[in-house]
Amino acid sequence: MYKRNPLSAHQLKPLALLFAALTVSGSALAWQPERPVEFVVTSGAGGGTDTFARTVQSIIGKHKLMDKSIIVSNKGGGSGAEGYVYSASSQDDPYKLTFGTNNEYLLPEVGEMPYAADDLQPVAAMAMDEFLIWVNGDADYASAKDFIDAAKQNPGKMQFAGSQSKDTDQTLVSMIEEATGTDFRYVPFNGGSQALVQLAGGHVDANVNNPNENLGQWQAGMVKPLCVFSPEQLPKGEPVYQGKGWGDIPTCQSQGIDISEYRMPRTVWLPAGAHEEAVTYYQELLRKVSETPEWKDYTTRTVQTSRFLTGDELQQYIDDNAKSVKKVFEQEGWNAS
């Protein structure tokens, strides 16, 4: 990979002059992208992270927040590891803006990965995706309490479907087991939509999908939510099914599952070593994105909590989040090596 511009003397004098001017004025002139920026998406096309990145792309385009064009590349292989490895391998390249979740720092914990969490630096977290317990629309459980009681009656029999193995879904299921003294069977499928189909078809008992992943099927009554893993109930919105909306779902804590908060941050990263000014530039860019009505529209529609975090605040969040999840990994013995 070539990061520097090997300009030869006879070449395009004006450009050289411009470069000289840039180096002289140095810090006075803020960093600006000089070529197309690559959005590295750590999920396949159509996944949650993909929608996130493409929404940001569409907002930047619509409001003309950046002069240079954007190239989106999907690198979802190995549960997203492909994208992180790709970014990590281009040290200090400020043109690889990488979109992901908390899997950036969780993947290296559970498996031998050819990248370390430190190989990328966090730029911003833009939203928090919620988790809920979903059951089949025809299931008898009226509340999460009923569900947990049923699980206590049948230890090791009831099945949770999830996106992947040892991911945020399975971590949450372990936490539920720990908090309620139940024992579930976790079946890893390929992605949230598969976990949804299995639940809608009645092949598993529950899943912990994000709101957006199950919205369309809740509208049709194929699945129904029991409780949400957030400290307070979700904001009131339009009714989704039989007069009930997102705001009517009780919190899991109120249902006797002692997990006050479990969320997944939607994060943006740059390769470690990328210039500080570039980081600041993207932070500002993403802040502008997060203040548009289109962004608000996106978070409302996908029932995410818009929360813009950068700098120390973000680092603090990541540290806390990593610590709490690692505790589960240790309990379950998932740690790599």
Binding site: Y2, N5, P6, L7, S8, Q11, L12, L15, E34, R35, P36, E38, S69, I71, S73, Y95
Partner: peptide, 17 residues
């Protein structure tokens, strides 16, 4: 299609990334 191909020093010298 806006899919970048692998580029080397020559393209970079011309300012194409």
């Amino acid at each position: 299609f806006q899919v970048p191909l692998l580029k080397g020093p020559l393209e970079h010298a011309f300012g194409i990334y």
